[in-house]
Amino acid sequence: MFYIVTAYHAEAKPIIEYFGLKKVVKNSRFQVFAGEEVALVESGPGVVASACATSFLLAEFEATDRDAVLNIGIAGAKNINLKKGDAILCHKIIYHDTKRAFYPDMIARHDMKEGVLETFDFPVIKGNFPEDRIEGDAVDMEGAGFFEAASFFLPPHKVHCIKVIHDYLEGVRVEPSFVSDLIRKNLPLIEGFMSSLESIDYLFSVGLSGKEKEIIDKLAGNLKLTFTMTHQLKNLILFYLSKHERLPGELYDFLNVRVNSKSEGKIYFERIKKLLC
């Protein structure tokens, strides 16, 4: 599942349309839209709002390590080498207020430019704020809050900020339809990146399947296995699967056994151990 956090509806609108998301009707502080593979939340502006909305979305949808989360929105550029409309995948996000920096794992292939994002608690306008105190190539008001919150839930190769350059910090008025256009034009690039993340997740998923977990749970219950024995059983199953494509048929016979005492369970456990070793 991909989770997306935007600040404004103008940023969310093209994404909602592109992925065919539907509004989730639920009494909540945030506007949420979801489809089969993508869910989006509109946070509103600011670091705290972004952190809250990110936490809300990831908790509400019970995000796991297999999911990824993106913060997509517009930003102002300090670096004049970045063009208006360029999508920037941020390899470093600095929270200006504390100078704390966050680093996503830059592992998945993409065709965007890269840069450093600096998040401020206030709109940065050239002339009102000394330019030499801006460390980032681009400036926003959400990235650091989003990243810190998302990092509580997901690994760093699954948390990313993508910012589309909107202005050069001249303090220009933000026109919603222009913002939507900027985001819309970059969605194929963003989708390409999402596809890389998805492939990596598919190729590198680790652990037992749902069916194997069910077998362990059932055996543990029926045979009254202790916590340690259940853990050993899981490890033995993984050991067996490292050498064989599927679990041995005889293991399924044990699923029908129900014991009356732990000592009886221990006898069956030893038999399973022999079978899997």
Partner: peptide
């Protein structure tokens, strides 16, 4: 790409990194 960091642990010791993927 060169990325400036304060301390190597800021990158090396981030929580929830995936060694297998990295």
């Amino acid at each position: 790409l060169k990325v400036r960091i304060k301390h190597y642990k800021d990158v090396f010791c981030r929580p929830r990194q995936n060694f297998f993927v990295q």
